[in-house]
Computed example of a mutant assay.
Amino acid sequence: MDQSEDLTAFWPVTTPNSAQGSSSDPAHLLSLKIEYLTWPDRVRELDRMFWSDANQRLSHEEITAVINRQALPAEGALAVDAYARQVKQVLTGAFVQLNEPQTVGTVWQAFTWLLLDRERERLPALAWLRAADPLVLRDHLAMLPGYAFLILAAMPTDSVEAFLARDAFWDAMLGATREISSESDPTAD
């Protein structure tokens, strides 16, 4: 599969269980695309997909409201919720198929697993992130506007992670980013 192919066009509103592992299942396609990538490369690809999908599915007003933590009309709130649920469903499905060890080893892995709908990965990710230096986390998340936006959309309450994501999103949009690389994360695969 060509790495430049955009899988967001294949993400359905729900992932049917009967399609697990099929060539048309977006979770299966995503798992194939990221399986052999290093964590920095996975995160780069996922970040692009998260941000691209948000821009395709949500209005400018909805995106702005999520970032600024403003209330949305019912229709906008439902659109944001549907976006976050669908992306997390596909992401979770992909990692279920990859069946990787649940030990968190990198900041990239921790941010990814934070977004999964399975406690098996999400709880170790939360513990890892809460034990890490918030400034280091913000620096890493500032390179990932798609991740920062998805964290904000998926966590409507003002958690530590949501505050970090909002600040990192603005850093990313204002150009305070650097290239994702293994050198910037000494624990990267």
Results as ranks from 00 to 15, higher is better:
S23P: 04
T8D: 05
A154S: 15
G146T: 09
D117N: 13
Q102A: 14
R85S: 15
E62C: 06
D47N: 10
A142S: 14
S4P: 01
F111Q: 03
T106R: 06
A19M: 15
R166E: 10
L72E: 07
F111D: 00
E121T: 12
R122H: 13
K33S: 15
A132W: 01
W170T: 06
G175P: 01
L174C: 05
L72M: 15
A148T: 08
L129E: 02
P124K: 06
W51S: 02
W51E: 05
E179L: 06
G146Y: 11
A110M: 11
S159D: 08
R130C: 04
V160Y: 08
D158M: 01
N55A: 07
S24I: 15
R118T: 09
L37T: 02
A165M: 14
E45F: 00
A188P: 02
S4F: 00
A188R: 07
W170R: 04
D2G: 00
Q86L: 08
D171A: 05
L137C: 13
R57F: 06
Y36G: 01
R138V: 12
E35R: 15
D167N: 10
L46D: 01
F149H: 09
A82Y: 07
F95H: 11
Q102S: 12
M1I: 02
L164G: 12
F169G: 06
A79I: 13
T187N: 12
L30F: 06
A65W: 03
D167Y: 09
D139F: 08
D133R: 12
V104K: 03
E161A: 03
A65K: 06
I63W: 07
G175D: 06
L115S: 04
W128P: 03
L115Y: 01
G146R: 08
A148K: 08
T15Y: 10
S23C: 07
D185M: 11
G175A: 08
E119G: 12
D47P: 04
A168V: 12
L32I: 13
L58I: 04
A153S: 15
A142Y: 08
T38V: 07
Q89H: 07
P101K: 07
F10V: 12
S4C: 02
P156W: 11
T38H: 09
L135V: 08
A27V: 01
A79T: 11
D158W: 13
L123M: 11
N68P: 00
E161H: 09
V66E: 03
A110Q: 04
I34R: 03
L46P: 01
L7C: 09
D41H: 04
A65I: 10
S59E: 00
A110F: 05
E35T: 14
S31N: 04
D189V: 07
M49S: 09
R130W: 09
